[in-house]
Structure formats: C-alpha cells, structure tokens
Nucleic acid binder design. Structure first.
Lengths: 186, 186
DNA sequence: AGATCATGTGTACGTTCGTACATATGATGC
DNA sequence: GCATCATATGTACGAACGTACACATGATCT
C-alpha cells in the first residue's frame, strides 16, 4: 500500500515549467514586479519552492520567460484584432475597440505590459523582449499604414490606454476615442 | 573641549525633511520603486537611518511625498514649456520639443513618472497625486485647445516619450514627431 | 524483482529589509 | 550654570527574501 495522505508525491508533470511561467505572469499582474517572489509564484502554480530554482536560473530568468510569454499573448491579441481589417474605416474601428477595451486585452494585461516596460528600462536583458514586442505590434499596423503613422498609432494606443487605466474619474467615450484615432490616420 | 571627531553631531538641519524627499526621488529614478529602501535614501540624503522613520510615517508615506514633489516639478516644466505659446504653430513646436527632449525634462524624470503611474495602479493612496498631475498637465494644454484635443495630445506625448525612452534602436526624428503632433491638433 | 541513477523536493542559511525603541543630545527656562 | 525635556539617532529584532544542497523518489535496465 502507498503511504497515503502523507505525501502528494506529484511527479511527472510534463507542462509544469509552462505552468510556472503562467503563474509568474499572474503574480506580476497582481503584485507587480516588486511583489513577485519565488514563494508567491510557487503558491499560485501549486509546486514546491525548490521547483523554481530547478527549472529556472534564478528569479531574473523566470521573469524574462514570463514577460516573453506575455508579449507573445499580446502579439496574438493584436493579430486577431486586426485580422479582418480591409480599409481605413475598419482600421480605425479596430484601433478604437482595442483602446476602448472591447478587445481581448483587459486591464491586467496592460498592467503587465507596463511592468515589462519599466523593468526593461533597468534590465538590459529584457530589452530583447520589448524590442521584439514593439516590432511585432508595429508590424501589424504597418500592413495598413506607413511606418510613421504606425508609430503614431502605437504611441496613441499606449498613451490612451495608460490614462484610461489610471484615471478613475472621467473616461473618454468611444466616439471621442474614434475621433482621436481618425486624426492620426491620414 | 568637544569630543572632536567622534560624532559629527549634526543637529538643527532645518530643511532636512525636504532633502530626504529629494533623495527619495533620486533613488526612485536610479533604482525604481522596487529598489527604493530606507537605507539607500538615508545614504543619498546623508542622514541617519532613524531619521526617516522619525520624519515620515513609514516608507509608503515617504514615497507619496517623493511622488508629490516630482509631480510638482513636472508641472513646473510643463508650465514653462508652454509659457510663451501664442498660436497653433508655437503650440506644435512646444509639444514637439517636449517630446524630443530638448525641453527640461530628461529621461530620468519620465522614468520616475512611469514609476509613479505603476505604483498608483496598485496603491490607491497615490491616486490623488496622479489625478492632480494629470489635471495640471491637461489644464495647461486646454489653454490652447479643446479638452478632447488636450487628452489626445497628453496621450501622444506620454506614448511617444515612453517608446523613445525604451527603444534603443530607431528614434523618431524631430520632423516626424512634429508631423504626428500636427495631426492631432485640428 | 531488485539495483541504479537521473529527476525532483524539503529545508536551512545568509542577507537585507522595515520598523520600534532606549538612549544621547543640545536648546531653553530658572 | 544647571535642570529639563522635546528632538534626534544608533542599534537591535522579527520577517521575508533568493538560493544552494543533501536527500527522497520512481522510471529504467538487467
């Protein structure tokens, strides 16, 4: 008989490493990079503490993986958001809905993105992640508009979402957002 | 005779509290909120460790003061940047130079601002600081344009500066920035 | 079935943190 | 000049952190 109830002894958990990365993203979303610790991630992923240092080369390495995964997910969201765009009007609609949060990206997703930006500002090892994410999002926009307009749209999205996320009082209406978006698209 | 050279015994330092706040801003700029500790601030301000808990009600209180001071300084920069603006062309020039970092705000100032945004996202006590700072910067712009345009400009500034701060590779030229700014100003 | 060994985990260590508090200090009233 | 007390500071403590490592575990091979 097994030594029942003494040890869960959960072994052979094939996508444990992947689950740890997801847990790390969750913890960053909830507590920020500053509040992200091995122990919290382990608790969310439901794995022992030692499992983190076993699979990853320290907390920095784990954070890099987490941000990388988040960037991939955000890229996918961008991709699907602009998938059916055919003309200028549809592009404006897509950007507007992305900002107005009718799209798939919620408040927490953007919060993680901002955490990444700030972390990358101080940790050069994360620059590759931000660079590739920016290139990806800009690349999607460049299918429809010239590079400069793409930069402008990217910045406008970032800025409006950030203000929307922070400002508790007065949110911009969808019509107002569309108005602003339309101005930057020639 | 005094017990020379044993104790500096620096007492009655009238603007010590203010100096501690400045030191806190410096530490946040260099190490981020995550790397901001009592001990580091004390070292920069050149005061004993106990002085921080004496003058402030914990680290959170000190951070709030630091962010408040930074917001004031940024408001002053905005103010002086738009002081001589008379017409649309001058407004566009002012915004462009603010983004292009010919203005007084340097990279570190913006970094602190982003730290504040992120911290406020999780700490409601900091919301008052961000709210007043946003109201202030928006108020300056609203002297020249309608409220919606002010929001758009504010977001564009934030987004472009953020991308500029992060992206190491390709920076936008001043002419390109001016082009984008001109589009959002009707 | 039993020996073997790569794979995985519990625990303990050294460090650093925020904070509290007993004590030192010097300005002030007598 | 001396006692007094608000002001300021050095130090110590408990908690939480990242990380390392000795040991348990079960798949694999003979």
């Amino acid at each position: 008989m097994k030594p029942a109830a003494t040890r869960p002894a959960r072994r052979f958990d094939p996508d444990r490493k992947s689950r740890i990365i997801d847990a790390a993203v969750t913890v960053v979303a909830e507590h920020g990079v500053a509040g992200t610790t091995h122990r919290r991630i382990a608790a969310v992923a439901d794995v022992p503490l030692g499992s983190l240092t076993y699979h990853f080369d320290g907390l920095g390495d784990l954070l890099a993986h987490a941000f990388g995964r988040h960037a991939e997910r955000m890229s996918a969201i961008y991709e699907s958001c602009f998938a059916g765009v055919r003309d200028r009007a549809q592009l404006i609609d897509a950007v507007t809905s992305l900002i107005h949060a009718d799209a798939e990206a919620d408040q927490q997703d953007w919060a993680v993105a901002y955490e990444l930006y700030l972390a990358a500002l101080r940790d050069p090892a994360l620059r590759t992640v931000t660079e590739s994410w920016m290139r990806s999002s800009r690349g999607v926009l460049e299918r429809f508009v010239d590079p400069l307009t793409a930069r402008g749209l990217d910045a406008l999205i970032e800025g409006l979402v950030m203000h929307k996320t922070l400002s508790t009082t007065t949110a911009l209406s969808e019509a107002e957002i569309r108005d602003l978006v339309r101005r930057t698209v020639p």
